[in-house]
Amino acid sequence: MGIKFIGQFLLEKNIIKPEQLIEAVEYQESKRLKFGDYALSKGYLTEKNIAKIQAEQRHTDMRFGELAVKLNILTPAQVDEILTLQKNDHILIGQALIEKGFIRPEVLERELALFKADQSKFVSEGIMVPSGAANPDIIKDMVDLTQKMLLRLAQMTIKLGNGYISNKEPEKNYLLVSVYLFGSLKYHYAVSASLEASRLVASKIIGEEVKKDNREAILDGEKEFCNITCGNIIAKMAQRGKAMDISPPMEINYSGGGYSLVKGGNAVYYPMASPEGNITLILVPG
């Protein structure tokens, strides 16, 4: 129902076993030539160059290619060429499962079609990102997944307002919940929601009506909504080649006359209106 990768999709459907997935991924990795091996075969590097770059790698987090450019051993164009070669030669997990005899080609073909149909629901379209906002594609994904999860988890159809950039803190609302996304990119993903909107989300997640005065249950439901949405966001980011992780959701308290979320930075705000109450999505970089 959420964003998946094909290995987990097949696992969840009991088409492959966990140990088969591990073996296929190890097989996939064993077939993958290292960056240095490609560069060597193209004549761009010598064994001596490789040893120098590897020695340097012990003191930095930079990748092999980046470091080779920094040391003036490779040009950026050569690095791009090798990365493309590496990507093109990489065997896909489905192919690895076939070659290991864990899945028949016709079953894989059928499941890939189902997987693509399942995942096509998560393509972002028609979302306007305010000019000046960094990472517009990532912002689109975050907004899109928030809308889709509101519909899926809470059956809430929202009308998306125009996104805007502001360095102001959010206005006071019933709940403000935030999840920290970190790794290749860093964002605070926050949802500000009215009592009615939060109560609806919590009721749908729990599967029974939550009373207005049960703030603890409402908060728990809102946190879980943010957790599920952000988990799906990082899965989408993984598809985009961005390795990211999330922290557990937390409530931001209103104190001293305001919230402390944006902290003078440039947050992207998206108002979301629905008959059940209003929600504002706030994305704060950093």
């Binding site: 129902m1 959420g2 964003i3 998946k4 990768f5 290995g7 987990q8 696992l11 969840e12 009991n14 966990p18 140990e19 997935l21 591990i22 991924v25 957790n227 599920i228 949405t229 952000c230 988990g231 799906n232 990082i234 899965a235 989408k236 993984a238 390795a243 992780d245 999330i246």
Partner: peptide
Amino acid sequence: SAAGVGDKVMEAIKFGAKNVISK
């Protein structure tokens, strides 16, 4: 909710999880 992240799925099953279901 993070079951769509390949690295997390691989880690979980390497540690011994029998399956991984996404939220």
